[in-house]
């Protein structure tokens, strides 16, 4: 017990000292441990850079709130369902892999409205528009990183509606 309380008082004194080089070494050691134990996914930085490469900073960011995978009837390949949410808009997309290796995306906007929609991919941008029911579809997409950008043309209280973007995902 004497050893424990002696250690406590050493610790208390030590806590008030300025940081020194041993502290720096210990922190560098902690960093290298966590780097090895739980590394940042190798594609994350590229995915973030791709998503941030937008022409304007004035947009609303949707959250990815749900991912689902399910088997297509009688097919071997899976469909994916992803939901993006914000206070003003929800986008649900269904992602399917075509036999020729390209990707098809079927989407629904809620509240339903017709808006110009852009799908940014590393192979270029694809444009379409949702119908009055909020539905849209894009086909022949090159697999890889992609990001949906909705550019409403209407106004709210005299202000132009804000552009809405999803985070980038891998199709």
């Amino acid at each position: 017990m004497a050893a424990v309380s002696a250690m406590d008082s050493v610790e208390a004194r030590s806590a008030g000292e300025p940081l020194d080089e041993l502290d720096a070494r210990i922190l560098a050691g902690v960093r290298s441990l966590w780097d090895a134990l739980d590394p940042v996914p190798s594609t994350l930085v590229d995915q973030i850079r791709f998503a941030m490469d937008l022409e304007s900073a004035d947009f609303e960011v949707l959250r990815l709130t749900e991912r689902m995978r399910f088997d297509v009837a009688r097919g071997e390949e899976q469909s994916r369902l992803i939901t993006f949410d914000s206070d003003s808009l929800t986008i649900m997309i269904k992602i399917d892999l075509n036999r020729n290796g390209t990707v098809r995306v079927d989407g629904w906007l809620t509240p339903p409205a017709s808006h110009p929609i852009e799908l940014r991919t590393t192979a270029g941008s694809l444009s379409t528009a949702s119908d009055d029911g909020g539905r849209f579809a894009l086909d022949g997409i090159t697999p890889g990183m992609a990001q949906l950008v909705v550019r409403p043309t209407g106004t709210v209280n005299g202000n132009r509606e804000r552009t809405v973007t999803t985070p980038s995902i891998v199709l």
């Binding site: 050493v10 610790e11 208390a12 008030g16 940081l19 210990i26």
Partner: peptide, 18 residues
């Protein structure tokens, strides 16, 4: 931590020393 070492880092140092 900062500007002084703080309790957590002081404890880690003590544990390493032991």
């Amino acid at each position: 931590i900062g500007p002084t070492r703080g309790r957590c880092l002081a404890r880690l140092r003590a544990l390493l020393a032991m």
